[in-house]
Write a protein that binds this DNA or RNA. Structure first.
Lengths: 227, 227
DNA sequence: ACTTCCTTGGAACGCCATTCCAGAGAGGCT
DNA sequence: AGCCTCTCTGGAATGGCGTTCCAAGGAAGT
């Protein structure tokens, strides 16, 4: 199909899959999911659709490649920390921050990327899970749970950020949602009403870390290190 | 804007928001995310686009309404079980099965539906969390974690089902992915390779329940009922 | 009967992903 | 040198999509 290799330089930098993916990430970051169109991409790269389609099969593949680029970068930094738990925390937080910075990634992680991107995350988490003393025959299950939580929380967080928009005030947004919760029907939403205030004051990142700790506590409770 | 009410019957059943949403759910179930188009919808309802747009603002709102209809139905059955834990399990499993049956829902839950659908789920989970003896000031955080895990796991599961397609053999699919994992680079994917066999034999539903139990164990570990 | 206004469906618009194709330009061959 | 080949390009064209506009249908109120 493709692979351009040894070729002398041109007036403009030669087109390549790498350069296309890079441009795609930039456009997605700037304008969100709907900001990536082949029209805009051809303009940005000063070329035509045919040139792009030579390097990339279709939009889905481009989206998957862009997602993989972001995740790979987030996973590139070796997680610091002495214990496996600390390393899981660091890895999870890195992923969370990456999804927060590129919030179009969330939708992709729950979609096409199973082929390449998810194994990457799975491997990173799994190594530390196995180091935690979880019995071997539970490795797959436990690792899956951790990955599912990380991706679920990151996706949820990105969804909130998306309805917000790039320039909006976060505190104002939380206050608005909190007020909306307080005005729900007391019969149907008694619980939600009572936590409306906590929701107003919460910090997304801290809550995510609390969630990781809770899952990790669950792992040690179900699979004690000594057993 | 809308609300049609007292009107005598016609040759064909009168159009209504309810009937449109119902048709949309049917089309999404039958043909997936891409199966819902206004063109096909007008044909199925034997009408024109203008008629539909009179009842529904745009496609996003229609998708949100369809999602809410599915989730509301899944949450309608009062969860059985004596303990709060059992009720959380029942509620979570109901949601998981609903997303599995309508796997286009997953993408929506991580998107627009924050306004209506997520509070519904949040309330259902939160009531049982508060009954578990979690300290009041942790209700929001703990409930969020549980909801995030449920949605994350359901989304992940639906994503797998989606690449599979309606008629494909599940065992065959697992075998194929498992084999692909076994052929990964041993240096980069040592962990993933060792659990490839477990992945081949796992059961999605059972693993989801194990995950719920793990999270619940984490809750009691961090917030002991007596404390 | 006449007016009003909710409701309908067809025609048209602009944008999108994708396909097709004529050809530019660099190596390799003779 | 000339020619051929094969990679790579970009412009034009296609079909499908969400959405808008609007002329009219038809029951309710007078």
């Amino acid at each position: 199909m493709s692979q351009q290799a040894r070729r002398s330089p041109r007036r403009t930098e030669a087109l390549s899959r790498e350069r296309i993916v890079e441009a795609a990430v930039g456009m997605l970051d700037a304008a969100g999911e709907g900001g990536l169109t082949f029209r805009a991409l051809t303009e940005r790269l000063a070329t035509g659709p045919g040139a792009i389609y030579w390097h990339v099969a279709n939009k889905g593949e481009l989206l998957a490649a862009a997602t993989d680029a972001v995740v790979a970068a987030a996973l590139a930094a070796e997680p610091e920390g002495a214990s496996p738990r600390d390393r899981i925390r660091a890895l999870a937080l890195g992923l969370f921050d990456a999804v927060d910075a590129h919030n179009w990634v969330a939708a992709q992680l729950s979609a096409s990327s199973w082929q390449v991107t998810t194994p990457r995350i799975f491997e990173g988490v799994g190594r530390h899970v196995s180091a935690m003393g979880v019995p071997r025959e539970q490795w797959f299950t436990v690792t899956s749970v951790v990955v599912q939580y990380i991706l679920g929380a990151a996706a949820q967080n990105a969804a909130n950020a998306q309805v917000l928009g790039p320039g909006a005030d976060r505190g104002e947004f939380l206050a608005k949602v909190s007020t909306a919760w307080e005005e729900l029907d007391p019969d149907d939403y008694s619980f939600t009403r009572t936590v409306a205030q906590q929701m107003r004051e919460h910090d997304d990142r801290q809550q995510f870390l609390d969630g990781i700790d809770l899952v990790l506590a669950g792992i040690t409770a179900v699979h004690p290190p000594a057993g």
